[in-house]
Write a protein that binds this DNA or RNA. Structure first.
Lengths: 345, 345
DNA sequence: TGAGAGAATGTACGCGTGTACATTTTACAT
DNA sequence: ATGTAAAATGTACACGCGTACATTCTCTCA
């Protein structure tokens, strides 16, 4: 391993000068700089990142915490892939690296480990839920001064860095779309209320239905757990009440597709016998049959902004905006159009 | 920040003793150990991971390199999610962390950066392709002594750590299945030959067809790029030759589903008018309509074994097996059954 | 020509840990 | 009681870098 010392000797300067060249510090005679860089090149010198971290007392790593359930896929892989890419892009721009931490859900919620071991300067936390345990864990993190940013989850009453999408508006628009297509009996298949965006979607749904003068009908509200299977199972319940249901808004694409499949088995075809709109606009929405209308959520951008925000606080730079909410967009496909099939057949 | 020194003072021992307690080294009087742990607890001491890395000259990080194409999804998110989880599980068992590195394809293939900066002790490399540039990059890595393991890609003629699935056998079994269902005109939609498993699948396909006494018919072989779109486009070509095609083996699920969609638009329904089998057994296979037969690939286990193998070489432990090939399994669903729909309708 | 003021570079130390080696304590056989 | 080996603990330094401060060089203006 080549060190600063050897470069200094070859370039006939002090170690400090070598350091200054590599950090672009202080005034510097061009000739000296040249000599140092040449020597470094000859020797193949590259600063040791760990020693740098040690001396700077900063790891240069951004922790990314994701829930991890072996063999279980509650969240779509798409969701994480997009967010990870967004974080990755931002991180790279700022010269940081990403340290991935898979957190088993019942794992003692020990966000602290990363912090104490000083392996990360800040964290982006994905897939958090609003439970007592998580609230206290996060509050503790905040007290200890580890900067973090939550993605796609808000905690009412607490003041965290949060980057979210406007799920209320997205859901409102989605239900509006169903209303515009002429549907009136609109069911809602939600996910667990532990996620703030489940609640947001409920609000958007209620806002649109109320606005349309429809009564709140709890028998039209169902709860799954964001898995395809739970959507498939909800199909059974919905089938029971099929004369009360013309259209369904599902809180994510996976449940929506489970729903499609469950109802298809009973002879009900989406886009012909009923309408469905999902949420996330994941790959699966384009893969499903019929293609699934969905609410596009800017996951990539959310990851990017979360990384930017939390790294800004590390740099001691002016506080970033505390809560960010990015716009969503309704993507209409066949599953929610009325009369599409009827015309054809 | 609490350091070893303060713990030592409180426990009335030397710093070295504290260090030994936390590393479980040397003989140690139980009472002393107790005192130290108590003091550490009182002060809230936790060893500084960066200082440890610095002193040990090991980062404790396993690099995970993945190709990164913004907004493009050539690889299924599923594929990476599974492998990442597998790596994550193994890494956690060994007390390592995962450092994610997104590598843009045209990015100067600079695997070396991670190595030189000493931020990782070893790497798992995903999504590598067999090109001249990559070969030389990897050879260079090998010379420089950075241990790495490739997943799902082999380099003929070179001797790297590689964890792969048995795509030859998997493809053979898949085509056998189609043959067993009575199909004779079997087309093959492959991906880029830059991936070793594309070649493997071709071999499996050829082996099965030859064995069945069928001639090699190049007009039955198509090439996509593993994207859904390329499958969709291939549908047009296959439709041209529709009287020559009864069944199609696609090299991944995404292309298979694109194919389903393209042919459905022309009135050809999988499982009724023709058979399709994909590869990966991703989420999408279960989501598609009809459900897609596919070759299950143990991505999770591959990630896990790759991490284990490459970390073994770091520990200086006995060399792990150089090339690992895990078994695949054919999953039959509706898309490849003959007569399923015919019976019903 | 000398003084003063930057510019350019050097000196020296700390960061928190691992660990080789030195020293002290303990246990036990004689 | 004494010697000896092993156990237990302490001392001291290296790891590679950032950086505060000290020093030397260079230029300008009087």
């Amino acid at each position: 391993m080549v060190t600063r010392k050897e470069v200094a000797e070859l370039a006939k300067v002090s170690e400090a000068t070598v350091s200054r060249v590599f950090n672009g510090l202080g005034p510097m005679k061009p000739a000296t700089k040249e000599r140092v860089l040449e020597a470094a090149k000859v020797l193949g010198y590259h600063p040791n990142a760990i020693a740098q971290s040690f001396a700077r007392r900063r790891s240069g790593n951004l922790g990314v915490v994701l829930p991890y359930m072996p063999k279980v896929h509650l969240f779509s892989a798409y969701y994480f892939a997009e967010i990870l890419s967004g974080i990755g892009e931002q991180v790279r721009e700022q010269g940081y690296d990403m340290l991935l931490s898979l957190l088993a859900p019942d794992d003692d919620l020990d966000y602290g480990r990363l912090y104490r071991s000083q392996k990360v300067d800040a964290c982006v936390i994905l897939g958090a839920r609003d439970t007592e345990a998580q609230r206290s864990s996060l509050l503790q993190l905040q007290e200890q001064g580890l900067p973090f940013c939550l993605v796609n989850q808000r905690f009412e009453g607490l003041s965290f860095l949060e980057v979210d999408a406007d799920h209320v508006e997205g859901s409102y628009q989605a239900v509006r779309h169903l209303l515009d297509e002429g549907y009136r009996k609109i069911a809602f298949l939600n996910g667990s209320p532990q996620y703030s965006n489940s609640m947001d979607r409920l609000h958007g749904y209620q806002k649109a239905t109320l606005e349309a003068g429809l009564p709140i009908d709890l028998s039209l509200q169902f709860e799954g757990n964001y898995s395809r299977t739970s959507g498939y199972e909800a199909a059974a319940q919905i089938w029971e009440n099929r004369d009360q249901v013309e259209a369904i808004f599902a809180a994510n694409d996976r449940m929506a597709i489970g729903l499609l499949q469950g109802l298809r088995e009973r002879g009900w075809i989406a886009g012909r016998d009923f309408a469905v709109i999902g949420c996330d606009d994941s790959d699966a929405a384009k893969l499903s049959d019929p293609p699934l209308s969905s609410i596009k959520v800017p996951f990539f951008e959310m990851g990017k902004q979360a990384a930017r925000a939390v790294l800004a606080t590390v740099g001691g730079a002016g506080e970033a905006q505390l809560q960010v909410k990015l716009p969503t967009e309704v993507k209409i496909r066949q599953s929610s159009k009325s009369g599409v099939w009827r015309v054809g057949s």
